[in-house]
């Protein structure tokens, strides 16, 4: 993708990889001297934090505004979603009927006792899901939910999202909370054991009858210290263009920002779904509440 952009525009891109939290910390300490023009990362919560500490700047671009729905970008247009992932319920085809599944809230029900697999609360995806639940139901209900889900867990949380799918396939748990694209990654893994996992599980999009399934994004913003602001905007516009959006699904198994335009067969096979239209900056705003509620609920 980066190559394509360079071919098309002649603009070279230097990439600095790193874990998102550390990149943000680094940008903070670099301040004005930072050589970075763009912060590209996953999760709206992180982009929100980057904005809060003043790392980003507002961008005016018709094309970005047109290509990216308003719930998927910062109200002040400091960051923009590039792809979308849904946090869904993955269940064992063998032991769970689709009819038993309904909402995130339902996961607190005692019928799931000892059957849920989910990763640690240190993970931003869980924190963002929690933030959306706080926004939807209030702090107290969200806390009760977290407590109940913690009790329903088949095992203490650990590992990555993939490990949760593996736990369901292995029979340790019956359902798992995880992001959609991990199923894509497992399905295309070079390890035959991983492909086996995918055959045993199915995807369920919760909360279809009310607010919709919780989604999150990978997105980007232009740094305040950007020395090549125009090129940076060009790059974001390129990524948001239909041409780029169409190929994301087959590269990283994420949905385009306009979910319905999804072109990937694998993604289509999971079925279409209604997504939560909450503005994603809320996820960032509620993040620290979410972390604290997790700690209170004893969700490690």
């Amino acid at each position: 993708m980066f190559k394509k952009f360079t071919e098309k525009t002649g603009i070279e891109i230097n990439i600095v990889k790193g874990s998102a939290d550390q990149l943000i910390q680094r940008l903070i300490s670099e301040g004005e001297n930072s050589p970075a023009d763009i912060l590209l990362t996953v999760d709206a919560g992180r982009l929100y934090r980057a904005k809060e500490v003043g790392l980003l700047q507002p961008i005016r671009s018709r094309m970005l505004y047109r290509n990216i729905p308003s719930s998927l970008r910062d109200p002040d247009n400091e960051w923009f979603a590039l792809t979308v992932r849904a946090r869904v319920i993955v269940y064992s085809k063998e032991r769970v009927s689709q009819d038993d599944l309904s909402t995130y809230e339902d996961l607190a029900s005692s019928k799931w006792k000892g059957r849920i697999a989910v990763r640690s609360s240190s993970n931003i995806y869980n924190q963002s899901l929690m933030a959306s639940l706080i926004e939807a139901n209030g702090k107290k209900k969200a806390l009760d939910w977290a407590k109940a889900v913690r009790l329903n867990m088949a095992r203490a949380p650990r590992g990555s999202d993939r490990d949760q799918a593996r736990a369901v396939a292995a029979g340790i748990a019956d359902i798992a909370i995880m992001n959609t694209y991990y199923i894509g990654k497992l399905a295309s893994s070079s390890d035959p054991k991983d492909r086996e996992v995918v055959k045993k599980v199915a995807i369920f999009f919760p909360n279809q009858k009310n607010r919709g399934t919780h989604i999150n994004i990978s997105g980007a913003g232009v740094t305040k210290s950007a020395k090549n602001k125009e090129n940076a905007i060009k790059f974001l516009e390129f990524l948001s263009s239909a041409e780029s959006q169409d190929v994301f699904g087959s590269i990283n198994f994420e949905y385009p920002v306009k979910i319905a335009n999804n072109k990937s067969d694998l993604l289509k096979s999971w079925g279409s779904f209604k997504s939560d239209k909450l503005n994603l900056s809320i996820l960032g705003k509620r993040n620290s509440d979410a972390v604290k509620l997790f700690d209170k609920a004893g969700w490690e």
């Binding site: 874990s19 939290d21 550390q22 934090r49 240190s122 620290s288 972390v291």
Partner: peptide, 8 residues
Amino acid sequence: FRTWLGMG
């Protein structure tokens, strides 16, 4: 690490 990087 969690407190510093995760909670900032």
